[in-house]
Design a binder for these strands. Structure first.
Lengths: 339, 339
DNA sequence: CTCTAGTGTTTAAGCGGTTAAACTATCCTG
DNA sequence: CAGGATAGTTTAACCGCTTAAACACTAGAG
């Protein structure tokens, strides 16, 4: 590997001169500059990002950490992979590299080393459980971070998320507009901001509308999991007064619900309407195609990355929560209730 | 940020001692060791991976580069995301970090800087076009690389891929076993190893079986693209003597073919059987569910990563091509031909 | 009681860049 | 034509950690 010294020696200048050619922080004689450039070419020289990083104390690299339990199956999951896509796009155009934190978060104690070694200039933490110590731990050692789907404010951190209140309203207004009044909810995990917020929004909307529904209509504890949703839906549909519509915390839950309905011989959407959240390909292709709240995941990833870059550049963005508007994709799993 | 000096000063030893505590390369008095460890705790010290990297000349990080044209939509693509998954899994357990090369490969000239700056110890290059200069360029400057779906041998590089010959045979034997003889092929891009190999394997199999098919049965140039496959299939199905089965270069092509058949009122699988490659979720969920050759993508990613780690550790693996066996997933898009 | 052989720690020179400050010409100004 | 400004380059310290080599000290051998 040729170093800056080799180049300097090769054309009889000091390493400082080569360095100035490299980053143009001083004016040099065109002739000198040309000679150095030629030598760099001939020697096939490429400066070491590591040495540079040590001097500059920044590596032009951000890390992305998926805060979910099962970190390793995360990439092929539609939610995370689209967020990742957005982060990569924004990073690419901002000249940043992205390193994947492969080491899943355990506890602040155990995982600190991986995230505090200055290998990355900052971190994007995606959807960490609300009860994990990861965000406070990272925040307390001044690592610049931006979170996705996590309450940022308490720690003075910028955070990006879907406007889940709005998304829930879209789904529920759609159902109510079709004439549904007996609308149940499959809850997501309470320790995830997205799940919790949708459930809160559901209750909020329902009481604002003056609907008084039995508690079984939003039974917890939930998860982002088709099997649990399946079981919960069976229970709902065998209630004396079953719901005519279900708002599921995400598409996986919705798929579980549709399966349960199918197994009970209850046709969707004729006798049961189902709305999910996430607009996954699986839902879109399912039979019937799932009506779903589409989160702007790529934009969320891009926004998170951009906020982090701003923060790293010094223009501190106000550490607040950025909510991006979801949209409702109406497909074939919703229809007016049979009366 | 506290440095090794702070720790050394805090407990009255030299930085060398702290360093030895850090990496245990010398025996120290238990008492000294304890004192240093305590200081590290109290000062909340975490060594800089960058400084370490500069000394060691390795960062314990590998890069992954997707060689396809449209790099930025790559993550959410099933092929790449599963490969990535495998790479991440293997890296995680080997203690390596993974950085995405967000900067898409342009030419050797333009992109060299990004890949030669020692930020990564080695590179996994996934499915680069065969006519791009990327692999030779990287190989010629001694960056340890492992390729996926690329002819590795010529450059003395380890390479991992699906055994496409075997996969093609699985698909074609399945069709022949059902009784098909008029089997057409939707070709993939010729500049991608996977596409090219499947087409070669198709021709090889057909002539070995003694089938003499019209050239229109495998018309090129192809692509991994549903629209082109759609057009090609329409042409095939309106031939005087149309095929009764189609072996598509991948699932996207197969989906295009099924759409074309549908639009022509030709029912799959009754009047046309279709086999794809990749076993994508979309294909699996489609109507009819697609019979497809499943590539062991996660294993491919893992293998590629492991080969790279071996290479980095010095145990040079023989730079040959590792072919992993695909399997055939039989679903509803194939059936015996109507006679 | 000297001499060697550990043992535990420090010194100091890197690793490959950056950059403030010093230096050396050259040029202009009064 | 001295004196200051300016332009182009070098010197050398530094970033934070590693590590060969030097050093100081004890302990056991002869």
């Amino acid at each position: 590997m040729t170093t800056i010294k080799d180049v300097a020696k090769a054309c009889g200048v000091s390493t400082a001169t080569v360095s100035y050619v490299l980053n143009g922080k001083r004016v040099l004689l065109p002739e000198t500059r040309a000679r150095v450039l030629r030598a760099m070419q001939e020697l096939n020289y490429h400066p070491s990002a590591v040495a540079r990083g040590l001097s500059h104390k920044r590596m032009n690299t951000i890390g992305i950490l998926f805060g979910t339990v099962n970190t390793m199956v995360v990439v092929s999951h539609p939610y995370t992979s689209f967020i990742l896509q957005g982060v990569l796009t924004a990073s690419s155009s901002a000249g940043y590299n992205v390193t994947f934190c492969t080491d899943p978060w355990r506890t602040a104690e155990l995982s600190a080393a991986t995230y505090r070694d200055q290998r990355t200039d900052g971190l994007i933490v995606v959807a960490p459980p609300m009860d994990a110590d990861i965000v406070p731990a990272l925040a307390s050692c001044n690592i610049p971070i931006v979170t996705v789907s996590y309450p940022g404010d308490p720690y003075g951190i910028a955070s990006v998320d879907t406007d889940n209140l709005h998304g829930t309203r879209l789904a529920l207004e759609h159902l109510r507009g079709l004439g549904h009044t007996r609308i149940a909810h499959l809850t997501g995990p309470v320790n995830m901001l997205g799940g919790r917020t949708r459930t809160e929004a559901y209750h909020h909307f329902m009481s604002a509308e003056g609907f008084h529904l039995p508690p079984e209509y939003a039974a917890g504890p939930g998860a982002f999991d088709a099997d649990l949703a399946y079981a919960q839906t069976r229970r709902l549909l065998t209630l004396p007064s079953p719901p005519t519509a279900i708002f599921a915390a995400n598409d996986q839950n919705a798929m579980g619900a549709m399966q349960a309905a199918r197994d009970l011989g209850i046709s969707v959407p004729i006798r049961l309407s189902v709305v999910g959240v996430d607009d996954t390909p699986e839902g879109a292709i399912g039979i019937p195609a799932l009506t779903s709240v589409r989160q702007p995941l790529i934009e969320i990833g891009e926004t998170a990355a951009r906020l982090l870059f701003q923060r790293l550049a010094g223009d501190a963005p106000d550490p607040s929560t950025w909510l991006l508007k979801p949209t409702l994709v109406v497909r074939d799993s919703t229809a007016p209730p049979v009366s």
